[in-house]
C-alpha cells in the first residue's frame, strides 16, 4: 500500500501553504526529466513519501520553509517562494544550493532518499526495483587464485610478544 493511500489528510504534517512551498522547492532540486523518463521529486507519490519521512523534523521544516518564504517576499516585492516566476525560483534555488544550512541538508537528504527509492526512478536508471539477489540470479564464484601472490608474499604482521 502506498504512502498516499495510508496517509490521511488530517495527518499531513505542515500547513497547506508550507506544503506548497516544500513541493515547489523539491521540484527545483530534482525536476522531472523527459530525456530520462524520470518523474520529479514533486511527483505526488514521491512528495507524500517525503512528507511522511519528514514528520520527525516538522519543527525544523516549518521554520526552514518559513525562512525561505520570507526571503522570497523580501527580495521579490512581496511574492512568496511558491509564487515566484520560474526564472526567479531557479535563481533562488541556485543560491540556496550553495548555502546549505542544517534544514536544507536534512531536506536534501530526505529528498534524495525518497526519490531514489521510488520504483519508477529505479526503472529509469535501468534497475529492477528489487534487491539484485537471489531470486533467479546466481552469484558468480570469485577467482580465489587472485590471492596467490598475497599468500606467497608471506605475513606482514608482528607476532604477539611471548
Amino acid at each position: 500500500m502506498s504512502n498516499e493511500e495510508t496517509l490521511l489528510a488530517s495527518d499531513l504534517p505542515l500547513s497547506e501553504p508550507q506544503r506548497e512551498i516544500l513541493r515547489t522547492l523539491i521540484g527545483s532540486i530534482i525536476p522531472a526529466s523527459r530525456d530520462y523518463d524520470a518523474p520529479g521529486a514533486d511527483d505526488p507519490l514521491i512528495f507524500k513519501d517525503i512528507l511522511v519521512t519528514a514528520r520527525s523534523y516538522t519543527d525544523m521544516f516549518e521554520a526552514g520553509l518559513e525562512d525561505i518564504d520570507q526571503q522570497a517576499i523580501r527580495d521579490h516585492d512581496g511574492v512568496g517562494f511558491a509564487a515566484l516566476s520560474e526564472t526567479d525560483r531557479r535563481a533562488m534555488a541556485e543560491h540556496l544550493s550553495r548555502t546549505l544550512n542544517p534544514f536544507l541538508r536534512t531536506l536534501v537528504s530526505i529528498t534524495a532518499q525518497c526519490y531514489y527509492r521510488d520504483d519508477r526512478v529505479m526503472q529509469a536508471l535501468g534497475m529492477e526495483p528489487r534487491p539484485p539477489f537471489p531470486k533467479g540470479f546466481t552469484i558468480e564464484e570469485g577467482d580465489w587464485t587472485l590471492l596467490e601472490p598475497v599468500r606467497r608474499r608471506g605475513k606482514l604482521y608482528r607476532d604477539v610478544d611471548g
Binding site: 527545483s28 532540486i29 525536476p31 534555488a93 541556485e94 536534501v108 531514489y116 536508471l125
Partner: peptide
C-alpha cells in the same frame, strides 16, 4: 542509488535543477 545521490549532492558534483 540513494548513497550516490547524497555523495554527489553534498560534494557539489550533482547540482539542483535540470
Amino acid at each position: 542509488p540513494v548513497a550516490t545521490a547524497l555523495t554527489g549532492m553534498f560534494s557539489g558534483r550533482i547540482p539542483w535543477g535540470e
